[in-house]
Each structure stands twice: as structure tokens, then as C-alpha cells.
Amino acid sequence: MHIVVCIKQVPDTADVKIDPKTNTLIREGVVSIINPFDMYAIEESLRLKEKLGGKVTAITMGPPQAENALREAMAMGVDAGILVSDRAFAGSDTWATSYTLSLALKKIGDYGVILCGKQASDGDTAQVGPGIAAHLDLPQITYVRKIEEISATHVIGERLLEEGTEVIRSPVPCVLTVVKEINEPRLPSLKGKLAARKAQIVHWKAADIQGEKANLGLDGSPTKVVKIFTPPARLGGQIFKGEPEEIVLQVVEKLKDAVIAAAS
């Protein structure tokens, strides 16, 4: 099976610190990483390939430097990397992003299972995976915590819902978005890293995927950001130290009304 995994390069939020004086993000020296949820999608794609044979292709839409994310995926064992990059994509919201990725998938053509992380850690929308499924008119299983069964024609996946697990059977091709619980991503091998460094990354521009200008980037994005601001700082409150019995009584007194209101 040709398994395709869609990944995104994001700023490492573990690196992001808040300037306590200005209450703004300190951005200097923040490194780019593969979106943490996509790491599980990459790992799962490799496991599926080990089971079924075939190959794994990673695709990403992003600036030229997103090539690094593809090389990292290839170091883990992904066979091929495609960078979909064009200035025409600048300003894409989730509509335009899922459109662009779906065109790249159409160009790939023989995809079976398409894997995505459940959401990206910078935007947190969880909209691009189902968006790709909609553009390609494919079935989807979102929030997958386990793949129970897979063959060339169908997949059975466990979806993590708020109140339990739903087991869903879908024909292939389909889109799966995965959660952290599904696996533990492997570390790249030294051999893999060396091979990835030399690997040829395929570059596709807007013309290569036959993107209609009206659906790309800024023009293709129905939503528009009008304002960005830092939320008011949450001021540290009261700190209680001392005898456990005493401080617990003080805090319970403060919380009493809120607890009664919330519990009712």
C-alpha cells in the first residue's frame, strides 16, 4: 500500500517562554520541529508499511525550510518526501491548506491510507485532516488511538471519544487522524539520518498541482485574522504556607462557595 503521511513544521512550544515584563512571547532562538502529533502519524505509517509492505511518502506544505521536517521523517524510515511550497500559498487558512494538500494527494494518485496528526500544536484547529477527507470525498476516522486491523481494502480503527472508544471500519482509501496514545515514535537511526541527508526531496509548486489561484493562499482562505493580542496575564494569587491543617481550612473557606456552586 502507498501510505501518505501529512506533516507540518511548527515552532517548538517547549522552547517558547513568556517575557514576564512585557507578557509577550520570547521568540528568539525558537527552533522548528515536526508537529508532535504528526510524529505519531509518521510512526504509525511506518508500522503499517512493516505489516503490509508498500511505501510511505511524507508531504508537507510550507516554506522552503520545511524540507527539514521531511528529512527528519525520512530519517525515521519514510521512503519519500514531497514539499509543496509556493509563495502563492502564503496566508492559507485551513480551507486553503486542506485544498492544497488534497491536490498534492491527487497528484500522488495511488494513496491508500492517509495519516495526519489530530491537530497542529501551533494552530490547534484539528480541521485540516477532515478537510482533506472532504476535498477528496474520502471517509475518515478521526482521533484514532489504535489500528486494530488493516488490509489493502479496509481498516478498523479505534476512535477516542469523550466518553469511550468507538471502533470504526472504513474502506481504503481513507483519512485517519491520530492521537498520542497510538504509539511511541521511534528515534531515527544513524543510517537513516545519513540517508535522509542525501535524499532527494521532491518540490511541487502551485502549477505542479494545478491549483486554482482563487482557491490558494490568501484568495482561497475564507477566514481572516483581524487582531492578535496577548491574553491578560494571569496574576499569581495567594500562596499559603505553614501548618497543613491551618492552610487547608483557609483555602476551603475561600473555595467553599465556588465548590458548592460548581458541584450543584
Binding site: T94, Q127, G131, T223
Partner: peptide
Amino acid sequence: ATTIGRSLVSRVAVTVKAGLTAD
């Protein structure tokens, strides 16, 4: 912005070409 909601309206917004803002 539940599991169901996010899975559902992402498909709807794409198909009718609507703007969708998450969460």
C-alpha cells in the same frame, strides 16, 4: 469544539466553502 463537532464541521465547511474558526 468537541471530538464530534470538530470532525463534523471541518467536512461541512470545506464542502460549502465556508470560513471555519476552531475552538
